[in-house]
Amino acid sequence: MTQRLLRAAPVLLVSALALAACQTAPAANAGFLQTYDGLQTKEGTLRVSVRDRRDDAASQGVERVFIEPSVLSPGAAEGIAPVDVALVLGEVDRQVCYEISERFTVLPAPATDAARVRTAVTRIVPTGAVGSGASAVANFFIPGPIGVRPPGTTGMLAAEAELVIEGGTQVAALAWARSANVVGMDTPSLSRVGDALQFAELFGDQVGDSFAPKDRAVRAIATPDPCERFGPREQPGGFITRAVTGLYVPETQGVRSQTPQ
């Protein structure tokens, strides 16, 4: 019995670490949303924290949307260079546009009779580049999709967004956060904001799900693509780079800095 317990101990330890590592705590309200009333915590999401609300009747009446450029909340990116912050904001804009365009008609400019999507990045925790590089090397020799990241090298992205109609009424709102896992499938990166950039896609996915009516089907991309200014939607070079190096490389993913408005 003792020998069996000793043999099982490493497995149990890794399992416990993986469970603890995949939990993301909710981020504190940043004060960006017009109101936080009615936000409900989405259950069954350990890896990501989701709090959202939607007025289904009101969102059903929304068809045309203008996406405002995302902003950075005060103190959300302490110690992170402005050039890296611009990359995160640009990627958030891109991913939000992609998902909104599959559910609404995205306008190139504001219109008095159109809704607005407002977004703020409320926290960026940097990725530890040295530790991530070591992880990429170590994970190369670990079979299977599960990788290990040194504690203290994992990054985070937190953001808030709302859908506002004419007159300033909040139709839908989202407070979202995602931390990289010490044990899991998050791809390490040498970029200081590698984790935050990767999580922008997950945030965009949730914006689309939280803002669109439940019965609104995903639609074909309009021609011309309203999100074309952010770059092509498909980035096969990024997949190849990950497969070869084990790293997330922003330059191969089509990431672009947010352009000053």
Rank of each mutant, 00 (worst) to 15 (best):
G79Y: 11
A81W: 11
V83K: 15
D84Q: 08
L87A: 07
V88S: 00
G90V: 03
G90F: 05
E91F: 07
V92P: 03
D93E: 13
R94D: 07
Y98A: 12
E99H: 13
E99S: 08
I100W: 01
E102Y: 04
F104Q: 00
V106N: 00
V106M: 01
L107C: 02
L107I: 02
A109Q: 15
A111Q: 14
D113Q: 09
A115L: 00
R116L: 07
R116E: 04
V121Q: 01
T122P: 12
R123Q: 14
P126Q: 04
T127N: 05
V130A: 12
G133T: 12
S135V: 07
V137K: 14
N139R: 04
F140R: 13
F141H: 10
P143F: 14
I146M: 10
I146S: 09
G147N: 00
V148G: 06
V148I: 15
R149H: 14
R149M: 08
R149D: 02
R149G: 03
P150T: 01
P151Q: 07
P151E: 07
G152P: 01
T153C: 09
T153Q: 06
G155N: 02
G155M: 01
G155S: 02
M156R: 13
M156L: 14
L157N: 00
A159E: 00
I165Q: 14
G167V: 08
G168N: 11
G168V: 10
